Amino acid sequence: MGSQRDGDGSVDRPAKARWCAVTGGRGFMARHLVAALVRSGEWNVRVTDLAPTIVLGPGESEGLLGDALRDGRAVYASVDVCNLDQLIEAFEGVDVVFHTAAADPGKNNLQLHYKVNVEGTKSVIDACKICKFPDAYARTKAEAEKFVMKANGIDDLLTCCIRPGAIFGPGDMILPTLDQYGQTLFIIGDGKNYDDFVYVENVVHGHICADRTLSTMKGAQRSGGKAYFITNMEPMNMWDFLYMVQEELGYKRLFKIRIPLLIIKPISYLVEWGYKVFYHYGMCQPHILTPARIKYTTLNRTFSCNKAIEELGYKPTVTIMDGLKATVESYIQLKNKNISRERK
């Protein structure tokens, strides 16, 4: 791919280059790919690989890659393709991912090759799905998070961000929705996806841990401007969790209905299109049957809290089961109070 040059020999680049990521970016072929992408002038490149820092080879420091790293057209990120958290952070804001990472072919180790080549590729796909936000809420929250992290250290301001998993607890909308469906559990897709649920009090605890950390000079230097995942550290199958909720609500023998993605996805897009056309005529905005909801209910979304444990001193104070029992108890009490008021 050629690049036009001005009379002074400089590359004539588009007004705003897009970002892409190259996994295994220090491999043989990947180095040539990175060079081609930078040379095109159409791309800024996030080079990812296992090494903690990038070590430039002979000629690279004074060449195209060295120049790109110095002027910001290329950046390096240490990423393990089997680590979903690291991948999500590396892919944030990119438009395209070139996945070239692979295990060393010279090592005849089936376990290693399976982990990197198969499980690593699955993680890359999951990270791409999570980073490609289809809904306004997630996109704007991600944008706001960047502002918060960049504000750290400016005018004596100390900041960090908390990234909670799927929050549940007294007052949430999960229980009323599941209670409404009674003994029926609608499973979308293959039903094998995992999620990292977090009890609301653990999210509160995470915020308090962040405040305590930023309140010390050492903690502020270590954690300022960073983001931390907060979960219950008990990842589980999402549909098993919903099944547990319905059982706690008293629905012991659930009738499970599995709906293939090939069927539900087109319907969700049709419903979304219908709302855009007919909302003027009183059509209610869909909340459950939307492409964004369908996507998030079929994704594998598990995160590591190791950084929060090591740097914030975070540790869940309430287990999933204890939190679930407290949530159901609160919901039933509130439901009974409402029934009593209606009867009066």
Rank of each mutant, 00 (worst) to 15 (best):
E311P: 15
M236V: 08
E201S: 15
A77V: 08
G72I: 10
L56P: 07
Y114T: 14
S3F: 03
W273P: 00
K276P: 00
G2L: 07
F91T: 00
T53K: 12
Y331Q: 05
M29A: 07
S10I: 05
D95S: 15
P291Q: 06
W239A: 03
I230Y: 04
P105S: 09
N202W: 06
A138K: 11
R39G: 13
C20G: 10
L324D: 00
D172F: 12
G250D: 08
V94D: 10
Q180K: 11
N83L: 01
W19D: 03
D71I: 05
K252Q: 12
P286D: 09
Y228L: 00
T298E: 00
A127L: 02
V318E: 11
T319W: 12
A138P: 01
E60D: 14
V79N: 05
S10V: 09
L33S: 03
A90K: 09
Y228R: 05
R39L: 12
D190T: 11
E62W: 02
L334T: 11
Y228H: 02
F28Q: 10
S78R: 06
S61G: 15
D67Q: 13
K141E: 10
L254W: 01
L65Y: 07
R73I: 05
S3Q: 04
P58A: 12
A101V: 00
F168I: 03
K337H: 14
K107S: 08
R163H: 05
A103D: 12
A36K: 10
S123K: 11
M29L: 15
S223Y: 03
W43M: 00
L110W: 15
S215M: 01
T159Q: 01
G206A: 04
C161D: 06
A17F: 00
G72H: 14
S61W: 05
A166E: 11
G59R: 09
E310D: 12
G182W: 00
A102Y: 04
T159M: 01
V245C: 14
W43E: 00
A17R: 14
A15P: 11
N306S: 14
C82A: 01
S223K: 07
T121F: 11
N338S: 15
V198P: 08
N336M: 12
Q4N: 13
N300V: 11
F241C: 07
E311G: 08
N117V: 01
P105F: 10
C284E: 10
N202E: 09
R70P: 07
V75H: 00
L242Q: 13
K132Q: 10
D195G: 06
A35Y: 11
V328C: 02
N152P: 03
R39W: 08
T53L: 06
V277K: 12
A51Y: 02
L289W: 09
T121W: 03
H280C: 11
A308T: 12
D322G: 02
G106R: 13
M233F: 03
P105V: 13
E60C: 03
H99A: 13
R70T: 14
K141P: 06
A103G: 14
I188P: 06
F28D: 14
V22L: 06
L270I: 07
V124D: 00
G282P: 03
R73E: 09
R70L: 07
R18C: 05
A144I: 02
H280N: 04
S10R: 15
N117Y: 02
R139A: 14
F197S: 10
V318T: 15
I54P: 13
M217S: 15
